[in-house]
Amino acid sequence: MAKMDKKWVALCSAAIAAVYAAGYVTTETEAAPAQTPQQYAQTDVQSGGGWASQADPFGQNGQASKSAGQPGKTSQSKKLYKDGTYTGMGSNRRGSIQVAVTIKNDKITDVEISHFAMHYSESDVVGLPGEVLQKQSAHVNNVSGATYSTQAFEDAVQDALTQAKNA
């Protein structure tokens, strides 16, 4: 078979580039970065003054820690997290995950994957909400073969916790 003429190669390449550009522009709005997740069911917002630890109870060490009041400074400790259910979003180049995290008395009582839009199977990460409850931490073990989904899930839980944090 004779080789394709270079002019035809250039012409076909240009035509394909034009089709690609048309598709890219058409889908630009859909590809906009994920919007900041909204908190949809916040209940029983804690109030109260006094001293509060800035430490993150669901952070790196994976253990929830209660804030401790300092004698003489305040008589009532303040909760680090507001009770309620918060949604968080985690995304990367392979898709996004939205979770709903329920917090009560500074404990994660429920985690649910409310929207799964990764390009991988949801079954890969189905055990992660349970791991968050067990560890009381956003940091879970990496699922082999599902690194991107694990990362997005962790980011989503962390995002929900950030929203739940008391100011």
Binding site: C12, I16, A22, G23, T26, E28, E30, R93, A117
Partner: peptide
């Protein structure tokens, strides 16, 4: 490539599937 990109363009026009992802890294 021509057919695939054209079909993704059509999918984008009619909001079928997730054409936006397929036209961007890492999928492209």
């Amino acid at each position: 490539i021509g057919t695939f990109l054209f079909l993704l363009f059509m999918m984008g026009c009619f909001h079928v599937g997730d054409a936006a992802d397929a036209l961007r890294p890492p999928f492209i």
